[in-house]
């Protein structure tokens, strides 16, 4: 893949500046600023409802922020959306795909929508289907795919234009361990050649092993960010995360959930 650092080392691949979003009385994202260095493998972690998806939606052009801005390699997502989107590949969480298409058609569609050359799209589609272990299922309708297969085909649609930044919301959910390992390899390779990856995840262990940088978000507020080693500060990431986020139950367990007491 042809990748490079537009504008040298000191630019961020993604630069989030004071993003804020409010849904009715609920503040989903509260003035979050975040720099994702180019060439980093960036983990975004937080409990359920922390605002991860909302923040990523605002950074990728799916949701208009109430305030703040997001820059992809210096290009403002909300001022020059088409240029910014051309640099990004996005796997959004909780959206459908055009699932009456076959897997092959869907990936092709994603390439053609970006105005890519037909032959290039055809070659890359076959490559992507192969590395995602979907070679034999390329002619099946996506609606008949399992959850994991759907995740993989969506990932393929996000990668076909060899973007400089991949924004992946929960990419490993429902993906089998073998495919997950394959995807991790692909992403690792991609970062090694200068690409930047942002993944959101609940699985701390995975983030600790895979990512170079991490940000912790909870209640719509950024709690910590930096390299993984900086953030975990000697603890395991999971311990540190629970520390930062809090909310471990102190209300006592379920005393009746003891088979011996019955």
């Amino acid at each position: 893949m042809r990748l490079g650092n537009v504008g040298g080392m000191n630019t961020s691949a993604l630069s989030i500046r004071s993003l804020a979003k409010q849904f009715g009385p609920k503040v989903a994202v509260n003035d979050v600023s975040l720099e994702v260095p180019a060439g980093s493998f960036f983990g975004l972690v937080g409990p359920n409802g922390a605002g991860k998806t909302t923040m990523l939606s605002m950074a990728t052009g799916l949701l208009r922020p109430d305030a703040g801005s997001a820059l992809v390699h210096g290009i403002d997502v909300w001022a020059q959306p088409q240029q910014a989107k051309a640099l990004m590949g996005v796997l959004a969480d909780g959206v459908r795909q055009f699932d009456r298409l076959t897997g092959r058609q869907l990936v092709t569609y994603s390439g053609l929508l970006r105005g890519m050359d037909k032959d290039e799209v055809a070659t890359r589609t076959e490559d992507l289907l192969r590395v995602m272990d979907l070679g034999e299922d390329g002619d099946k309708l996506v609606v008949d795919y399992s959850a994991g297969m759907t995740k993989k085909i969506s990932l393929a649609t996000a990668m076909i234009h060899s973007p400089q930044l991949l924004v992946l919301d929960e990419p490993f959910e429902a993906v089998d361990p073998v495919s997950a390992a394959n995807i991790r390899d692909i992403l690792g390779e991609y970062v090694k050649f200068g690409g930047t990856v942002i993944v959101s995840s609940h699985v701390m262990d995975l983030v600790q092993r895979m990512c170079s940088h991490v940000a912790v978000i909870a209640g719509g507020v950024l709690r910590a960010s930096g390299t993984v080693d900086e953030v975990r500060d000697g603890m395991s990431l999971e311990e540190r995360f629970v520390d930062l986020v809090g909310g471990r139950g102190e209300s006592g367990g379920l005393s009746w959930l003891r088979t011996s007491s019955n």
Binding site: T102, Q105, T108, Y109, L112, L113, D139, K140, L141
Partner: peptide
């Protein structure tokens, strides 16, 4: 259930390979 399938690219093959053509094929 038995999965349905379609061979090849269908309309994507013969529609113009532009964004508008792709939307039309889809």
């Amino acid at each position: 259930q038995r999965a349905a399938s379609a061979k090849g690219l269908g309309p994507f093959k013969w529609m113009p390979a532009t964004p508008a053509g792709a939307v039309a094929a889809r």
